[in-house]
């Protein structure tokens, strides 16, 4: 029982503080690591914005783009140097299967999973930032439900995390905008006056002025 609870706590911590590796091999990297990290989409909302330039400090490898035969051993090396437990998301058709370079290509490896084990696949060419977030949320869910400290390294099977078909970018934007408009608006003066300390200070002032 204690171990189960400890697991839950550890997995919660792990899932909400993924540190991705600064590693991009092709055009997907522009979408996955640059667009999502920037202010408009903001990877920081999911606690995974601390992109590290050193493998020793990272535990999430986002394979953004095709892996060529020359890169494959280097990528394997990076993977092996990463801190455990380590997670891998493969984004884009290139990293999933070789994509447009599947046939008649002398260099491209047909899928990053020929080189390292992958936890979540995010399809697209390139996937939209929303799709990547969906993949990241999937990975977080898998981490929370998955590993126990008794059996490190035993996880749920890899999944293909495609954004549900009927969700459009427009809808997501509208939803975020509505949430910002309806729930996140406060009256700063009012909120400040409601603080307990504000009340207390007001009472002191009143008492002092009565004296």
């Amino acid at each position: 029982m204690a171990i189960t609870r400890l697991d839950a706590a550890i997995n919660l911590a792990r899932s909400n503080s993924l540190w991705p590796l600064m590693f991009g091999t092709k055009c997907c990297a522009i979408e996955m690591l640059m667009a999502t990290g920037a202010a408009h989409h903001d990877l920081a909302r999911f606690g995974a914005e601390v992109a590290r330039a050193s493998v020793r400090q990272a535990d999430l490898m986002v394979i953004a783009g095709a892996i060529v035969k020359k890169m494959a051993p280097r990528m394997r090396l990076l993977y092996e140097q990463m801190a455990e437990p380590r997670y891998v998301i493969a984004t884009g058709s290139c990293a999933i299967s070789g994509g447009p370079f599947m046939y008649n290509s002398y260099t491209v490896v047909r899928g990053a999973d020929e080189v390292v084990p992958v936890d979540v696949y995010v399809p697209g060419c390139p996937p939209r930032p929303e799709a990547f977030f969906w993949g990241l949320l999937t990975l977080q869910r898998m981490i929370r439900e998955g590993e126990t400290i008794r059996e490190p390294g035993v996880r749920r099977k890899p999944v293909m995390a495609a954004l549900p078909e009927d969700v459009s970018l427009h809808e997501i934007r509208a939803e975020i905008r509505a949430a910002l408009a309806n729930e996140n608006v406060i009256d700063v003066t009012q909120a400040a006056n409601q603080k307990p300390w504000a009340r207390k200070v007001r009472e002191w002032i009143q008492r002092a002025s009565l004296r």
């Binding site: 035969k69 046939y103 008649n104 290509s105 002398y106």
Partner: peptide, 8 residues
């Protein structure tokens, strides 16, 4: 080479 796939 032996790794390359021909387009069907």
């Amino acid at each position: 080479d032996e790794y390359m796939l021909e387009l069907p």
